[in-house]
Amino acid sequence: MKIGLYFGTFNPVHVGHLIIANHFAEYSDLDKIWMVITPHNPFKKKKTLLDNHHRYQLVLEAVEEYPAIEASTIEFNLPQPNYTSNTLAHLKEKYPQHEFCLIMGEDNLRTLHKWKNYEVILKHHDIYVYPRIADSEDQTQHELLNNERIHIIEAPVVEISSTAIRKAIKAGKNCRPLLPQSVWRYIDEMNFYK
């Protein structure tokens, strides 16, 4: 089985994440999409994150009606901070029958050369890239685009930000259209981000 790993802090998961995950489930050769909830991204401040189990619950709620998309806690028990190369090595060992691929935005592709062991990742895993609105072109990106492991997928450009959603909730704004209904309910009931 070919599994696309869609990493994120999902703080909170929103309709933009679902649009991307569902697009790859429907319009690529990936059999399943695992939304991998990252406990702590080395590039992000940890204090703004909801607890792992709450973010997992939000993703679980969001993907309930999408059989090809699953919430994954695979990184929860790995050493912190998590690095994608370590997670991929762990998954390969735990599920040798599956082929794991990465799903990332164009913006992440531009910084891939800064990732720990990125050459190893590229050697062993396909990377599926969805478009993002970009400010500037980068030479690194052009070099990577020629790599046979990189697949650019025409997907909807979704510019919804978890950060903006958190700020909106804190400011008492109605941002319900940006969240799956079950996710909004959970956030509202738990008084998150206020």
Rank of each mutant, 00 (worst) to 15 (best):
I153K: 10
S162V: 12
I160L: 10
R55N: 00
G172S: 10
T111Q: 03
E143M: 15
R176C: 07
T48L: 12
I133V: 10
G105C: 07
H113W: 02
I103C: 09
H125R: 06
V129W: 02
I150A: 01
Y186T: 15
I37W: 12
R166D: 02
S162P: 04
I187T: 03
N52R: 05
V36D: 12
T48V: 15
I150Y: 00
H40M: 04
Q139D: 15
D135Q: 13
D107V: 04
E26W: 03
Y130G: 08
T73D: 15
Y186D: 15
Y193T: 08
Y95C: 06
L122A: 12
K167T: 15
E106Q: 11
W115I: 00
G4D: 01
A171G: 12
I20G: 03
H113F: 04
N41I: 00
V129S: 06
K123V: 03
A134R: 15
N86A: 09
L144S: 06
E189S: 13
E75K: 07
V36N: 02
K2I: 03
I133C: 09
N117G: 07
H151M: 02
L178E: 02
L109I: 02
L144Y: 10
V63G: 04
N191T: 09
K47M: 11
F192M: 15
N174W: 03
L109T: 04
S85R: 04
L18D: 02
V120H: 14
S28M: 01
E93C: 07
T48N: 12
C175W: 01
M104V: 04
S136D: 13
F76A: 08
E75V: 02
K44E: 02
Y118T: 00
K173W: 09
S161V: 02
T38Y: 01
H14N: 04
A171Q: 14
R132K: 10
H17F: 05
V157R: 02
I187F: 08
A89D: 01
R185F: 05
A155P: 07
P156I: 14
Q141L: 07
E61P: 00
L144M: 09
W115E: 06
G172Q: 02
Y186V: 03
